[in-house]
Amino acid sequence: MAGLMEDEVFKAFSTYAAIVILKMMLMGPMTGFYRHARGAFSNEEDVSGKSAEEKKKQLRTHPDVERVRRCHLNDLENIVPFVMVGLLYALTGPELSSALLHFRLFAGSRIFHTVAYVGALPQPSRGLSWILGMLVTFSMAYRVLSTVLLL
Rank of each mutant, 00 (worst) to 15 (best):
G39F: 08
E77T: 02
M25D: 00
D64G: 03
V47M: 02
V144S: 02
I19F: 11
P94F: 04
N43G: 01
A12P: 02
H102E: 04
G3D: 14
M134E: 09
M1Q: 06
E8W: 08
M1P: 05
F10T: 06
M140I: 01
M134F: 15
Y117C: 11
H62Y: 10
A37N: 10
M5I: 05
R126S: 05
G93D: 11
A17T: 07
R143S: 10
L76Q: 08
L100A: 09
I131E: 05
G3T: 09
E54F: 12
G108D: 04
L91D: 01
V20Y: 08
G119D: 04
I79G: 07
L26E: 07
I19D: 02
M84D: 00
V83A: 12
F106V: 03
N43Y: 15
L4T: 02
D46S: 14
K23V: 13
P122E: 10
F33I: 11
L132H: 02
H72N: 08
V68P: 08
S97D: 15
S14R: 12
S48D: 15
W130K: 00
K11W: 02
K50N: 07
H72F: 14
A52P: 13
V136C: 02
D46V: 05
M30H: 11
T147D: 06
M24K: 00
T61Q: 15
A12W: 03
S98P: 00
G93H: 14
R126C: 01
A99T: 12
V80R: 09
Y142M: 07
M140P: 03
M84W: 12
V118W: 00
P122F: 11
K23I: 13
L105R: 07
V68H: 06
H113V: 02
R69P: 02
S125K: 13
P81S: 11
M84Q: 07
V83K: 04
L132Y: 01
L76E: 06
S146T: 06
D75V: 01
F138W: 12
H113R: 04
I21T: 14
N78C: 05
A120V: 10
Y16K: 01
S48W: 10
I111S: 04
M140Q: 10
S125R: 13
Y34Q: 12
E44S: 06
F41Y: 15
R104N: 03
F10H: 09
H113P: 03
R35Q: 05
L150G: 00
T15G: 07
S14T: 12
H102K: 09
F138V: 11
D46Y: 10
F106R: 05
I111K: 03
L73D: 06
E95A: 15
M140C: 05
L59S: 04
T31S: 14
G127D: 01
T147P: 08
S125L: 15
P81T: 08
V118I: 07
L132C: 14
K50H: 15
D46W: 02
V144F: 01
G39I: 06
E54N: 03
T137D: 00
F33A: 06
R104C: 04
R69W: 10
K11V: 10
M30S: 13
L150H: 08
F112N: 03
R69D: 14
M30C: 09
